[in-house]
Design a protein around this nucleic acid. Sequence first.
DNA 1: CAAAGTAGTCAGAGACTCTGACGATCGTCA
DNA 2: TGACGATCGTCAGAGTCTCTGACTACTTTG
Lengths: 140, 140
Amino acid sequence: MNLGLLLFIPYRSMEARVFAGLAEAGYDDITPAQARVFQRIAPDGSRLTDLAEQAQITKQSAGFLVDQLERAGYVERVPDPTDARARLVRIARRGAEAIPVAAAIVAEVEAEWAAHLGKQRMAQLHQILGRLREITDPYQ
Amino acid sequence: MNLGLLLFIPYRSMEARVFAGLAEAGYDDITPAQARVFQRIAPDGSRLTDLAEQAQITKQSAGFLVDQLERAGYVERVPDPTDARARLVRIARRGAEAIPVAAAIVAEVEAEWAAHLGKQRMAQLHQILGRLREITDPYQ
DNA sequence: CAAAGTAGTCAGAGACTCTGACGATCGTCA
DNA sequence: TGACGATCGTCAGAGTCTCTGACTACTTTG
């Protein structure tokens, strides 16, 4: 079986679990597309252009998604002190609150996977995917 | 780093490579969404409902995508001899021609990955993902 | 200080997905 | 065998996400 599909299947499973859990915890106003941008915001804020590049979407699409995240209270935009053209997208109150909820679900799913695969295979998977990232992630 | 994202990165890389190669070979009228349905058509044809279930989309969405694949000549719809309500979606001429092209690109990408990881790790990756599929793919 | 480049927005369009409702057909159980 | 619930696929309408192209404001470079 094609390795692409083999990677996609657990990815989708993880994503579905995280969104189901977030929705259950009251964070039902965030979508996968928004989360893929949100996930890439640096601790001290990121520029829209950088987020777009990392998420591999156009800056227009990123702007559209950040607008929604901002309206829902997950992020805020502040002027970039080093460049008057730019603004920094930063994680706001509601966004900061959602992060540990999502992290807990990820940990739960990873624990299930580890239970099925065994700790050693789980560690191998992590390590191999890390190495694979070296040649498949242009923005690592 | 979160395993979900770690799975997603090489998946997206593979997908992008396959679509770039298909477009270069003249198959520039197929989209990722269409391909995710196309990929799941059984050798002797599949029902729309089954495709929708496997791709985890609604049957309306699957119908929309199959309409486009049909118009572009990748698939055809024939009556299901065992059930007058249903029709079978089958791979048509253009679809059959595209498959080896896509398979060659997948093989090329997998060879690059094997060169980077080593044959042994590549085999481990395949094996581990296969086991992971047991608990993450409801339609295996 | 002019020219070239970069950050972000506006406008418009297309692709994909969903919910809800529907007619046609199937399978089952009285 | 015939009524009834379930299933197959479609139509209609709406919302979400993405893109291309063009633009303003600001920065960097020569």
